[in-house]
Nucleic acid binder design. Structure first.
Length: 602
DNA sequence: TTAGGGTTAG
């Protein structure tokens, strides 16, 4: 008989077995260990087939291990795992647990829940190992109803005090948007692990409760019993990113370097995203270029980071590197690539990418990709092409798409298309005050005063108000939030005094307030007062008072910057000799010496 | 032999 190398090895191991051990069990263990050492699914299948021929397969205990080896390794071999599972006549709790876990790892959470149903149907008792996987499946699917049901089973079977189950419950409720339930489970726990804190912190982060997330991190540290691990710190980094808290992000980076050996690709991606979105693009680039191995997430973070800083050409270079490395682009990466073209005005490159996305990479454009393209064409003044693209869309255009066209019609006046876009917007989103103002300004540009007045009247009749704007600024590692027209904060007296001084100096630089975007029907003086109270100006004034001369000011806003704040900030950067970085809803603006990196093209 | 927490767009 010609032996394959694997079988030679098996025989060798069998010959070496300890007579004191159970020879059958030893043989089974050796088979399993050989299977576990296989380097690929092909090798695994071949070895398994040989054991099957030799009659070493069939014991349910070993079958469970085989499923585990196959399903839980990184081969993506769930089909094969399922075929092994299907051959077991009477799968027990362990086999069900393993196949369920495999499906969850393979992100086929629906299949995991179906298998749980089958498990119950067959009368197989779930145990405390079954539930963490199932709860994770509910978390993936945001399936709250199923999550509640499973929590009921957990309670009935008495697993509610199991630490792993509790942590999974916290996570499930968090991912289903029920952070109150997460907190309730956490508060009831007798024993808490770092993973419990991480799950609770991540629950807050996944709901966008960034400040709450940082507060909890502070609580965890002040209790002093736990040392944050990678997962905790990644959630903290994500909160810093969204709050624009660069100093806090830097501290978290320091903590990672001190306490965690060898940062993995997830941490590095979070760090890139944090630095880039907190305004430190160069630091993000440095981490990116030093990464030993990059995945799609890392490329995506870097490409969209370069995009929001207006560095479109570099974003396209990084994209080319990614393709050269053999990584497959996905829909998310193409959003970054197209928005990079849009922010930098790269029209022909954007058109090429849009075509390549569909024809070469077979990615169907979503509404986000169309949004980027309409924005790109509209900014470049190609309004008819943008409108034709909207008409050719395979799905119903949404308000974002029409708003891109309407904004473009203001920059490159086109009354006919503006009225079409405006009409669609008033149908799709009749409560957005900004759209009425935009169209009324377009009428004003075209000297159509009656239409302008009609828009303003419509706005007043509907009683619409703009979403309140806010800006955050980090001073001495603390994030300070200012709401538009803020008068409640104790610092406000000093802030308004500073604004008074700033405006005094601005007048010498020729600043005239641009009140065209003030919605209220009040006199000019009151409109100017409203402009002075814009949150961005309050945040800049606060930073000028509390930071040292020459230091950079970094601001994050929830809305797009208005044209008055843009003009104002450019002049302030010159008068006070400060670099001011503002992240608005769309992109970054680097103000320095009276100019902005967006070249007034935003 | 099995279980928990983390990253990219909008």
């Amino acid at each position: 008989m010609i032996r394959t190398p694997i079988l030679q090895q098996t025989h060798l191991l069998m010959a070496q077995e300890d007579p004191l051990q159970n020879p059958d069990l030893l043989r089974q263990q050796e088979c399993l260990s050989l299977l576990q050492r296989c380097k690929s699914i092909e090798e695994f299948k071949q070895t398994h087939a040989q054991f099957f021929k030799l009659g070493l397969d069939g014991d349910p205990r070993r079958s469970g291990s085989l499923i585990a080896t196959c399903a839980l390794s990184n081969w993506g071999s769930m089909d094969y795992a399922c075929s092994i599972f299907g051959r077991i006549e009477e799968p027990g709790t362990f086999e069900f647990n393993t196949i369920i876990r495999g499906h969850v790892k393979d992100t086929d959470s629906q299949a995991a829940l179906i298998l749980y149903g089958k498990m119950l149907e067959r009368g197989v008792e779930p145990d405390n190992f079954t539930y963490p996987s199932l709860l994770k499946a509910c978390a993936h699917l945001s399936a709250l109803e199923e999550g509640f049901q499973i929590h009921g089973h957990v309670f009935k079977l008495g697993f509610e005090s199991d630490l792993f189950v509790q942590n999974s419950l916290i996570n499930m409720y968090g991912k289903c948007g029920q952070v109150k339930h997460s907190s309730r489970v956490f508060e009831k726990m007798d024993e808490i692990s770092v993973a419990s804190w991480s799950a609770l912190i991540a629950s807050h982060a996944s709901l966008g409760l960034w400040s709450g997330c940082l507060r909890l991190f502070g609580d965890m540290n002040s209790e002093g019993c736990w040392r944050a691990n990678v997962s905790t710190l990644v959630s903290v980094l994500s909160s810093c990113t969204h709050l624009g808290a660069l100093d806090l992000g830097r501290c978290t980076h320091g903590s990672l370097l001190r306490n965690i050996s060898g940062l993995n690709v997830i941490v590095e991606t979070s760090l890139i995203d944090m630095y880039v979105k907190c305004g430190s693009l160069e630091k993000g680039l440095a981490i990116f270029h030093k990464m030993p191995k990059k995945n799609q997430f890392a490329y995506s973070a870097m490409i969209s980071g370069l995009a929001i800083h207006g560095r479109g050409k570099e974003a396209l270079d990084v994209f080319s590197d990614m393709l050269e490395e053999g990584l497959k682009p996905d829909a998310v990466i193409y959003v970054g690539v197209l928005s990079a073209c849009s922010h930098a005005g790269l029209v022909s490159e954007g058109r090429q990418c849009f075509t390549r996305m569909r024809l070469k990479h077979h990615i169907e454009p979503t509404i986000l990709h169309y949004g980027c393209m309409i924005d790109l064409l509209g900014r470049a003044g190609l309004l008819n092409e943008a409108y034709e693209l909207i008409k050719s869309m395979s799905m119903e255009p949404n308000d974002v798409v029409w708003r891109c066209l309407l904004s473009a019609c203001k920059v490159h006046p086109n009354l006919e298309l503006a009225e079409i876009a405006g009409g669609k917007l008033f149908q799709l989103d009749p409560h957005n005050a900004g759209d009425y103002v935009l169209l009324s300004n377009i009428y004003a540009q075209a000297y159509q005063w009656e239409d302008m007045a009609r828009m303003r009247k419509d706005l007043a009749r509907r009683g619409l108000i703009q979403m309140p704007g806010f800006s955050t600024v980090e001073v001495k590692r603390k994030v300070h939030k200012f709401v538009s027209q803020d008068k409640l904060r104790p610092e406000c007296d000093a802030v308004y005094e500073m604004i008074h001084q700033m405006e005094w100096q601005l007048r010498f630089e020729g600043y005239i307030p641009d009140t065209s975007q003030v919605l209220l029907d009040v006199n000019e003086e009151e409109k100017q007062q409203r402009l002075s109270g814009h949150s961005q100006k309050l945040a800049i004034a606060f930073a000028l008072i509390h930071t040292s001369k020459g230091s950079t000011i970094r601001i994050v806003k929830n809305l797009r910057m208005c044209s008055d704040c843009h003009k104002y900030t450019k002049l302030i950067s010159k008068i006070f000799e400060r670099k001011i970085f503002v992240r608005d809803r769309n992109r970054f603006h680097h103000f320095q010496d009276g100019t902005c990196s967006c070249r007034d093209y935003w």
